[in-house]
Design a binder for these strands. Sequence first.
DNA 1: CTAACCGCTTGCAATTTGCAACCAGAAGGG
DNA 2: CCCTTCTGGTTGCAAATTGCAAGCGGTTAG
Lengths: 157, 157
Amino acid sequence: MTVELLGDRWSLIVLRDIMFSGKTHYRELLAASTEGIASNILASRLAKLVAAGLLTRDDDPSHRQKVEYHLTEAAIQLVPVLAQLGAWGARWLETTPELTVRAELLAAGGPPLWERFMAELRATHLAGAPTPADGVLADLTAAYHRAAAGRGRAAAG
Amino acid sequence: MTVELLGDRWSLIVLRDIMFSGKTHYRELLAASTEGIASNILASRLAKLVAAGLLTRDDDPSHRQKVEYHLTEAAIQLVPVLAQLGAWGARWLETTPELTVRAELLAAGGPPLWERFMAELRATHLAGAPTPADGVLADLTAAYHRAAAGRGRAAAG
DNA sequence: CTAACCGCTTGCAATTTGCAACCAGAAGGG
DNA sequence: CCCTTCTGGTTGCAAATTGCAAGCGGTTAG
């Protein structure tokens, strides 16, 4: 059962963060989490996701202590799930504008956009290619940051 | 955040059971759950889902103590999410054939089938019409029971 | 009048979560 | 070499959540 694997407060959030932030290191993920995950929970979730075959844990050649977490094909195929989940949340729940705009963009693009995004994730996480600056993820991230900046200005002004 | 609302072991399962089994009473849901939810957990999840606006709690006119739980429009719009989630689980996780066949049928039908299913749920849960014997839910349930029976035979023989 | 059924609660043990502090090893700069 | 910073985590502990079994006041059918 899928819920048994992903149905806790953090597993999906960790996957989402790796997918959309592009971060692959433990400390980065710990800092990137806007929800504020605790270090022991992050460690246990990463281990669980690796055991479940959703992430790989690879040595970073640039630093003997660094570890890179990468998405597997199974995790990449969660893109449609996350897209639908995000669309539903944007429609029915009150969230921050930056999360909403990204979810709506991904939902509006539909399956063709999801496929492009998944191809990009495969190149980055499975083949080790650098993430393109003009790809789907870049668009989503730009929209995310615009909305976040707009919110900052609105709150300040 | 959607995960905060639905990201526990049982909330989505309760919704799925109401959606696909057609049961609306507490005792029925308690018995119908193949995963075996505890009565106190079911009670707390039903209360939470009602508070979140995903279920309504209505008196059953036929019995002063009976209560009917019905899906709201927000819950009905989770159909695409559950479809994608089920498709992913059928593809990547080992589950029982009866759950797999239903998930694959729903995924294969795509958005048009989802819409028909949602229209059916609206008629049943929002308008109070009886569930049609020739609808999407009937097809899904028939496939589910055929697979379950096949498994029973295979296990016995 | 009695037995079954209704939604749901209670008590309790076990597990999970969240928080803060901490760790050993590795790399970088002077 | 030495000190600081950074690496992926671990540890101890309190609080919250979960799971199990039994039970409860009221309702209904026979």
